[in-house]
């Protein structure tokens, strides 16, 4: 997928919010980076366990 399509996909998540052209331009330039950042962090964390928040109340003990 082209980078512009990826940016477009992310911008689609803001559908319904009226943003100025200047805002959109700024946001688009920021989210261009996000694909790369996520890819780097995904590679970095690859062999690490998925983290989870305990569901049980914190004051419960064995």
């Amino acid at each position: 997928m082209k980078d512009t399509e990826k940016v477009g996909q992310r911008l689609a998540l803001l559908k319904g919010i009226s943003l100025s052209p200047a805002d959109l331009e700024w946001i688009a330039s920021e989210i261009e980076d996000l694909e790369r950042v996520v890819a780097e962090l995904e590679e970095f964390g690859r062999d690490t366990p998925w983290t989870a928040m305990p569901v049980q109340p914190p004051d419960k003990k064995v």
Partner: peptide, 12 residues
């Protein structure tokens, strides 16, 4: 899913 991916990096 991206947020959860980032949390793995945080854990590392």
């Amino acid at each position: 899913s991206e947020y959860l991916t980032v949390q793995r990096a945080r854990h590392r």
